[in-house]
Design a protein around this nucleic acid. Structure first.
Lengths: 209, 209
DNA sequence: TGTACATCAGTGAACGCGCGTTCACTGATGTAC
DNA sequence: TGTACATCAGTGAACGCGCGTTCACTGATGTAC
């Protein structure tokens, strides 16, 4: 690593720290790229050199915090509890985390969730890794004999994440919804996902148009 | 209805038609409020009088098309087919519809899905009505004996919609994904949702943190 | 080792664009008497 | 029925703001010889 390269990284850090501070305090919609440059003690043009857009900066500035929280949630997860409890433990941790600044994370997710894949490499990769991890947990449950062996673990992981994400969307756009309300709703749908809704013994021909 | 009131509605229609045309041809990000005003033969200020923001205009301009497609999908739904087939029939219709202009609907959904509830009254109401309708279908299936009577139909409807919506998100942000790929994925997760993933006979205690 | 040149991160100012907002105004329509 | 006034949809122009982009420039750092 060059001297040139190290100073470049230092500038980047300065910008990221200033951005994190301002995003958290003023909110991402009420602070400008110029505010961040000023706060970082750097030229506005320099911010653009490092991050091609405000959204890109937002993603990079926040994804590490999210990552930290995921790691913590996974670390404190009850190892022997049923799958649903472990799933809900992580959901509880994440919802509480987002609850600390709902407006901020609402904007982050809105601005990243619908962009073409290449636009949010950090969050995209983070999600993929988490889905793989959670799929692994489900595979383990097959070995333990609590999950049907024919079930597709990756599909199941993605489905449970879909339920988690839908509730999160509702949570972020509805200020009256508390963390506990979100968790209750999620628990109901996740539980029903695990046990299914078809009457037992019913034939399931997966045919469709 | 006054003469004054009727002319007001005419102006509104002029704006909406111009907006629909431009949104579809140029895309919502490449046409301005002034473009729309010009196309409608109306003053730019007048557009703002009728619609408080570009997003609000986008919502009103497009929701009727969506509504029309939902109605058509429901009308052509095979009445006697299994629940999953009927669900997939509607999904197929909607995905194909969105496929006709992915970029346009990606922007519409991005800009509405994460706004506070009051900001998109039309789409919010549309979704609620559809969820109620689909919940009703599931209730019917209980009567027919294909769905467990203890299952919660509203939760099930919301869950299936979550799966549908997640795949739609992926579909809209990933240009390489075809309608059929989206449908295959959805069929797998929806089917698994119906039958559940727990090993039969497994106790399901819904406890969670 | 020294010199001469190339590279490139960062600068500060300026510009164009789109959106939302404001403003004083017009003129047709509605209403009170 | 007529007159005098009030209401209000629509106008056109202007403004402020934030973002992204461009530009010529500086000066420290790296590199070729």
């Amino acid at each position: 690593m060059n001297r040139r390269e190290t100073t470049k990284q230092e500038t980047r850090k300065l910008i990221l720290n200033a951005a994190r501070r301002l995003f958290h305090t003023k909110g991402p919609e009420r602070c400008t790229m110029r505010d961040i440059a000023l706060q970082a003690g750097v030229s506005p043009a320099s911010v653009v050199v490092h991050f091609k857009s405000k959204t890109a900066l937002l993603e990079v500035a926040l994804y590490e915090d999210i990552e930290r929280n995921i790691v913590r949630a996974v670390a404190t997860m009850p190892q022997t509890a049923p799958l649903l409890d472990r799933f809900m433990h992580i959901a509880q941790s994440m919802y509480s985390f987002y609850d600390s600044n709902r407006e901020l994370y609402r904007v982050l997710i809105r601005d990243t969730a619908f962009e073409p894949k290449g636009e949010n490499p950090y969050l995209t990769r983070q999600l993929q890794e988490y889905l793989r991890f959670f799929g692994g947990l489900i595979e383990q449950e097959k070995v333990l004999g609590t999950i049907r062996p024919e079930a597709d673990a990756q599909i199941a992981a993605a489905s449970l994440f879909s339920l988690y994400f839908s509730v999160l969307m509702e949570f972020l756009r509805n200020g009256n919804m508390t963390v506990n309300m979100a968790l209750e709703w999620l628990a109901l749908s996740a539980n029903q996902h695990l046990i299914g809704i078809l009457l037992q013994g019913e034939e399931t021909n997966g045919r469709c148009a």
